[in-house]
Design a binder for these strands. Structure first.
Lengths: 162, 162
DNA sequence: AATGAATATGTTATAAAATAACAAGTCAAG
DNA sequence: CTTGACTTGTTATTTTATAACATATTCATT
């Protein structure tokens, strides 16, 4: 199952969506010899519960509910691990984190953040990143990492408001 | 004088560059009936001193040096005003602020951030924003604001390292 | 199994970034 | 000269993130 913006922004079988993404994440972790320890797994599950981005302290609250200690490094370490290995994206505009919906597929995501329902989707295609690479190349700038984020209104919330 | 990435990333007459940008900012403020009060003016000058982004607390330090009180709202209010009126950009990846190099020209900037010399330039053209608008439009997402930022190495630092 | 290197966790403390809230002052328009 | 909008002063707090160091676990190799 492939989850892109159309799906994130619409009603869908989220249980299946979450399960599929988690399974894929586990394959990746296994393939790379990484360890999806209990905190890390739970952190990923927490982020997979919705398509909304969560702040580190919201994640921490839910980790506490699952029995882990209420200490910032607990959440930040798990989140950093997941981000480093491409299972979670950091959303800089929100100081928050969202599960990657296509782990393993190398991609340079651009995010669409609905400021009404707080859902975060990865924009389809690679056009935005390509344009950034082109613009940078034109002035001799070599890109290492990028943050491509747009805030606005998703189709459902647009309609609800109209 | 128009200052784009090529210029920011190269040696240039920065005194003239700064003066020109400040003058343009003053015209804009006057034209819109806004008030460029002393804190606001000084804040803009501070950011215009280099092409690097400064954190709010670095700005505050320099405001203190200029006689203002050391209180976060002093810096944040001035910065917020300047951002709201397009004279300063917020660089989310850095939790920092950089003077806009083309105030008044309506634009949707994409930033190139050198992680060696910390210079921040606006990428040429509107291609990145256009691509983002296109990607969003394809899924019915309506964009209000965007952050388009790339971290990497500018031409000069690339060469220095090579 | 014993050892050691790498990795992961527990814990305390602190740093860094941003905002809330409210009182007081300024300023230009009627 | 007063009203209303805007701006500043000030105290306190909230939110986000990291430093630092001790302990424990894991795994590969003896």
């Amino acid at each position: 199952m492939r989850i892109d913006a159309e799906r994130v922004f619409s009603a869908h079988d989220h249980a299946a969506c979450r399960r599929a993404t988690l399974e894929r994440a586990e394959e990746i972790v296994a393939a790379e010899g990484l360890r999806l320890t209990p905190v890390r797994r739970r952190t990923l599950e927490i982020l997979l519960e919705s398509h909304q981005a969560l702040g580190a302290y919201e994640v921490l609250d839910r980790l506490v509910a699952a029995g882990f200690a209420r200490q910032p490094p607990v959440a930040y370490r798990a989140l950093d691990f997941l981000v480093d290995h491409g299972l979670v994206h950091r959303i800089r505009r929100l100081n928050a984190f969202a599960a990657c919906m296509r782990p393993g597929e190398p991609h340079r995501p651009a995010f669409l953040i609905c400021d009404t329902c707080q859902a975060v989707a990865e924009a389809p295609g690679t056009g935005v990143a390509d344009a950034m690479l082109a613009a940078a190349g034109a002035v001799g700038f070599e890109i290492e990492r990028m943050s491509l984020e747009a805030v606005g209104r998703c189709p459902a919330c647009r309609e609800a408001r109209a």
